[in-house]
Amino acid sequence: MRYWFPYPVLSLLLLGFWLLVNQSVSPGQILLGTVLSVSLSWAMVNLEPSKPRLRRPGAALRLAGFVVRDIAQSNIAVLGAVLSRRKRPVQSAFVMVELQLQDDNAIALLACILTTTPGTAWLEYDRQTRMLLIHVLDTADGKDWQSIVTHRYERLLREIFE
């Protein structure tokens, strides 16, 4: 069973996406989608991704809440920066942050969160030194990004993934 269906959740998601794109639940589409999703999950075996194990759904929900709130706040802040009348609208800076996360999937999720937030952009992560380089749009508000990343995101991500 495990041999024939190496990634059952991924296959189900792909099948769902295929049916959504085609907007039909006819037997032919379901058959075609099943064949495609199972063969694509075999392709995933060759890529050998590390399997994530989601431990705490509660922590994931809290993380989602934080992310939505931060994105909304950051949207408003960037909107204010764009529309401000100053000649040079923002004081941006490169900021180094030290990460303690080990899991690759958790780091990828952190990258997506930081990049989707308009105020910050992920630039580079060095595996050897565990240093992360991010670019912050507005440093005038004096936020301590090291403590924000460590205490708000990393703590929850470690609860979820490790």
């Binding site: 994105i71 960037v78 764009v82 040079r88 609208p89 941006s92 490169f94 989707t116 308009p118 952009a121």
Partner: peptide, 16 residues
């Protein structure tokens, strides 16, 4: 925005 890295933040506003 003045530099490329500042401009990198702007399209996020459009998409998010």
């Amino acid at each position: 925005f003045q530099s490329f890295y500042e401009r990198l933040h702007a399209p996020t506003l459009c998409t998010s």
